[in-house]
Structures are given as C-alpha cells and as structure tokens.
Write a protein that binds this DNA or RNA. Structure first.
Lengths: 152, 152
DNA sequence: GTGATTTAATTCACATGTTAAGTAAATGAT
DNA sequence: ATCATTTACTTAACATGTGAATTAAATCAC
C-alpha cells in the first residue's frame, strides 16, 4: 500500500460503492417479484395499512416528487396501491391494496433473511454503529444550510 | 417509539440519505460549471493527463457501461474529452482535452474547500474511520473480489 | 368575498440507472 | 487459416434522478 490514489472523493465513492454492495443483496429477489428497489421502498413505507400523502412518502423513501409520481402510477397500474380521499384536495393520500399487502409479506420474508446475512457478515454491532455514524454525518451537514452565498 | 416504523431497512436508507447529504455539498458548484456529478467523477478520474479505457473508467467512477457511453458522448460534444488511438481496436481509450484539464482545475479548487468543510463539520478522524468502515462493509458483501485497484 | 400568495402534485425535458440484446475485434482451438 | 468463443463497447427500452415550469387547491391579506 503506497500512498493511495489520494482520491479525496473517497467519501463519495465509498458511500456509492457501499450502497451498491448492499442493494445488490436485495435487487434480485425484489426484482423477481416484479418490483424495482424504489418501488419496494414505497411498498415498505405503506405496509401494514399505513396511508401516507405523497410528500411524506417521498421524504420517507428518499425519492423526489417527480419520480414518486411515476412510481405511484406504475404501482397503481399493477393494482398494488390506491388513492384514498382526502379533505385537502391538493394532496393525494396513498395506501396499499390487499394485493399490495400480500406482495409486501412475500418479499419481506426474504428481505429479512438477506438483512440478517449482512449482519452476520459485517457484525451486528458494527452495523448499528455504522448507521449511527451515517446519520450523524447527515445531521452534521444538514444543520448548516443557508448556503451563505448569493447576496444580490 | 420502540415499535414505530421498525425500519430495518435503516442501512439502505441511511446510506442513501448520507450520500444525498454529501453530494448536496458539491452539486451546486459542479452544476454551475455545467457538469453533473457523474460527469465530474469522470473528469476527476482523467485529471492530470491520465488516459483510461472505458472499462477501467467505469469501475473507478462506479458508473455502468451504458451510462458511461452517454456521458462520454456528452463530454466529447462539450470538447472536454477525446479518444486516443489504441492497439486493441475494441477498446476506447479516453483522456481530457486541454479544455477539460482547465475545467477540472477550476472545479477542483472549490471541491477541496467543500471537502475540508465536511471534515470540519464531522471530524477528520471520524470521517476516515467511516470510509474504512464503508469499505469493509463492501468487502464483506462482495463474493467475487474485483480488485477495483489500478495498474500504473 | 376578491385577489395575491403559498402549498401539493404533476408535467416536461434531459441525464443517468439497469438489464438485455447487439456489434465488432481479439483470442483460442483445431 | 477457419470458426466458435470471449472481450469491449454500444444500442435499445424502460425506470428513476433532477431542476424548472405548470396546474389546482388551500390560505392569507385586505
């Protein structure tokens, strides 16, 4: 190990690679059920009868609004989600259909096993620490918004 | 809330959010230079006169081959990269043009400052530990070891 | 109540992610 | 040399990422 390629971008790349490695553990069996990973995140967020408006759903799934619009159209066409009436007629509240709940349970079984396998491979305590660290990183960056540039 | 949303997916989500938070630090000034973050990763990998074939470039930038094809077309149209002849006429070897090198330097200045700001906010040692941990996670999940390292 | 403003989603346009299929050149076996 | 195989990329098709503009409905100011 000489002086590494001084890839100061290492944080970004490390996050990217780590995420690739983790999602790879789930992509096959989620895909076999006919869902993308993003669609699966939406299904998960709605599991158990939870009804959420688009904005909340987007935040929880870390999906931008335009993407969520398309995802919900796909899931709706597949009969997995439906819209429930809302007092505020601007917002769209979504919930799983019975078919959606059933599909969730099927995928969820396997997902839990895959997650347990990651805990085994990496260490359960280390994994918990890592998540804490990742969340602290995010918190330390999001606290100081107010860009600080661009005064007219 | 012990039994709130029991989001066991926390690892995936934590990685996603952390990455969002980090990339947000760079997106504006890279975008102001007319580049996407992916295009910037490619420029970075080629900085300093480095010439790389598509496969190596894709691995280093963590970009899939089809995406890289399009990105290289965009960068080529913008006059930032060019193809150099290769003995093996299957592969396409890429390098920066002078304009590409110049643009790299401009963006690089600011990027380093942004990265230093992250180190300040999160802690330099903690950041190093986090990257190590992320790389260990990836290593523990990847069954077939692709080096990802570089020949000279 | 009328009009300006804000909020919630969607639509648009373009770039990338992802898988599968296709093309061309190098390699290997005979 | 000839042909099947492998390698390096590209293309195709569809899904999502991303920022800007748009539409509809609620809220605020008067």
């Amino acid at each position: 190990m000489a002086d590494a390629p001084r890839y100061d971008d290492s944080l970004t790349i490390a996050l990217l690679r780590a995420r690739d490695a983790v999602t790879a553990q789930f992509r096959d069996h989620v895909g076999a059920a006919g869902l993308t990973l993003q669609q699966w995140r939406v299904i998960r967020a709605l599991a158990g009868g939870t009804a959420l408006d688009t904005t909340t759903l987007a935040k929880r799934c870390v999906i931008l609004a335009p993407s969520l619009t398309r995802i919900l159209r796909h899931l709706g066409d597949a009969g997995l989600v439906e819209t429930v009436p809302s007092r505020d007629r601007r917002q769209r509240v979504i919930r799983l259909t019975p078919a959606g709940e059933t599909l969730f349970i099927d995928i969820w079984q396997v997902s839990q096993q895959k997650y347990a396998a990651i805990e085994d491979a990496f260490g359960k305590d280390e994994l918990r620490d890592l998540v804490v660290s990742l969340n602290r990183l995010r918190a330390s960056l999001e606290t100081d918004q107010e860009t600080g540039d661009v005064p007219a």
